[in-house]
């Protein structure tokens, strides 16, 4: 009954996290699994965009999000956070990158720090789902073209016109309301007791 609310103790992530972890079958057992994930998190922080199997990417994503989130929350003077960073980042120069590059980049974000895409797989070939995992704000060209900026694209033309029409309707509504209320006021008897109109 007296348990602390877990969501107050750890940072709430902005991605969906599975209720149960993936085992990521490994001959070395759980330690082997962790090593695998540490390698992936390190590579993600280092390269900012990596392509790998979907399961491993999705599993590592949560840990990377949590790491960045903690780094933002506690800063680099917090012993536990520094130890966590030391654990997850196999290349120690990346600890500096985490606190000096990624924390300033992400501290004002209100969305997740990473993105994941499904990647095409070779046919015929291994049937594993592939994916691309990347840090937001990376320096590479975007994987999907940005279709929101070009206002001439057909969906933007349609949406812009719909917006214009909506505003026009709203303005007409307001105008009709004000004129109606004005006419009511006008109909009220004036100071000399006779209606003005």
């Amino acid at each position: 009954m007296n348990q602390a609310d877990v969501s107050k103790l750890v940072s709430q992530l902005r991605i969906a996290v599975n209720a149960r972890h993936r085992n990521l079958k490994n001959p070395a057992g759980p330690e082997g699994r962790l090593l695998k994930l540490r390698k992936t998190v390190t590579a993600l922080i280092k390269h900012e965009r990596i392509e790998l199997n979907y399961n491993r990417a999705d599993e590592a994503r949560g840990y990377a999000e949590r790491l960045i989130s903690d780094a933002i929350r506690y800063g680099d003077c917090h012993k536990a956070t520094m130890e966590t960073a030391d654990f997850w980042l196999l290349e120690k120069q990346l600890v500096h990158k985490l606190f000096k590059v990624l924390v300033p980049r992400f501290e004002n974000y209100n969305i997740s720090y990473t993105r994941m895409f499904r990647a095409p797989k070779d046919y015929p070939g291994p049937s594993f789902e592939r994916s691309v995992l990347e840090l937001r704000g990376n320096p590479y060209p975007p994987l999907y073209p940005d279709q929101s900026q070009n206002r001439n694209l057909i969906h933007n033309v349609l949406l812009d016109e719909a917006r214009k029409e909506f505003r026009k309707e709203k303005i007409a509504e307001v105008v009709s309301k004000t004129t109606a209320s004005e006419s009511i006021e006008e109909r009220k008897p004036g100071p000399n007791g006779s209606p003005t109109s």
């Binding site: 073209p145 279709q147 070009n150 001439n152 694209l153 057909i154």
Partner: peptide
């Protein structure tokens, strides 16, 4: 195609 710069 539908996503060229000026698709008018």
């Amino acid at each position: 195609n539908f996503t060229v710069a000026d698709p008018h």
